[in-house]
Simulated scan of single mutants.
Amino acid sequence: MTTRRIVVLSAGLSTPSSTRLLADRLAAAVTAALADRGERAEVQVVELREHARDLADHLVAGFPNTALAPVLESVAAADAVVAVTPIFSASYSGLFKTFVDVLDRDALTGTPVLLAATGGTARHSLALEHAMRPLFAYLRAATVPTAVFAAPEDWGATEVGTTLDGRVGRAAGELADAVAARPPATRTDLFADVPDFTSLLKG
């Protein structure tokens, strides 16, 4: 059984958050879908709020600190990414965009990505298509057809065919199919060729 590395990005700003709740539900569904296809999932959930200052440091310094570097490496080496953000002002959050801004331009090329979001009203659901999908198209990621949006009323919906669980399951299946069709990703160190400061000082 092949082990696939799945990185789940959660851009929720509170603890607990509906964004993290949706991220966990998607992670569980992807794990189950991969198991159905004879694949084992190794899931890493990244709470971006825990790296807010690290991201700001990166923007100012131009390189990641020791806390952020492993996260960027994990994303670049992932077999798939689940990206979940709250929607503010009809688009992804500033925290989520900042993380995308510091990613290596080729980190997600060809990587299967499942897009998901939470919001205070279902009217924000189109942000997945007019904001998030173009963003990941720019990064040349392979986004799956089904994106998952969760409004407050979705958490308790029970109508067959329209439930949040139904959308989560469909999207997870699409991501699992995309992952199973690809060879395992190779882990590379994005910063292996960067000299340390001692070497720079020695000239």
Score class of each variant (00 low, 15 high):
3 T>D: 14
9 L>G: 01
10 S>T: 01
10 S>R: 02
11 A>I: 02
17 S>F: 02
18 S>I: 00
18 S>R: 13
18 S>F: 07
19 T>S: 10
21 L>I: 11
23 A>M: 02
23 A>I: 08
24 D>Q: 11
25 R>E: 14
29 A>Q: 10
33 A>D: 14
33 A>E: 13
39 E>K: 08
40 R>P: 00
51 H>D: 11
53 R>A: 14
55 L>I: 13
55 L>S: 01
56 A>Y: 14
60 V>S: 10
63 F>M: 15
65 N>C: 02
66 T>N: 15
66 T>M: 12
69 A>D: 04
69 A>T: 01
70 P>G: 14
71 V>A: 07
72 L>Y: 02
72 L>I: 14
75 V>Y: 05
76 A>V: 00
80 A>S: 12
81 V>E: 06
82 V>F: 11
82 V>N: 15
82 V>Y: 11
85 T>Y: 12
87 I>L: 12
88 F>V: 05
88 F>S: 05
91 S>N: 00
93 S>I: 03
94 G>K: 06
97 K>H: 01
100 V>D: 04
103 L>V: 05
104 D>M: 10
104 D>R: 11
105 R>K: 14
108 L>P: 06
109 T>N: 15
110 G>A: 10
111 T>Y: 08
111 T>V: 15
113 V>F: 02
115 L>D: 13
116 A>M: 06
116 A>K: 01
120 G>H: 05
120 G>R: 12
129 E>S: 12
133 R>K: 10
133 R>N: 06
135 L>M: 12
136 F>P: 04
142 A>R: 12
144 V>K: 09
146 T>F: 02
147 A>P: 00
147 A>S: 12
149 F>I: 06
149 F>E: 01
149 F>C: 07
155 W>M: 04
156 G>F: 08
158 T>D: 11
159 E>K: 07
159 E>A: 08
159 E>L: 09
163 T>M: 07
163 T>Y: 13
166 G>A: 15
169 G>Y: 03
170 R>D: 02
171 A>T: 09
171 A>Y: 07
173 G>M: 15
175 L>W: 01
177 D>G: 03
180 A>D: 09
183 P>Q: 15
185 A>N: 09
190 L>R: 04
191 F>W: 11
198 T>V: 07
199 S>C: 00
199 S>I: 00
200 L>Y: 11
201 L>I: 03
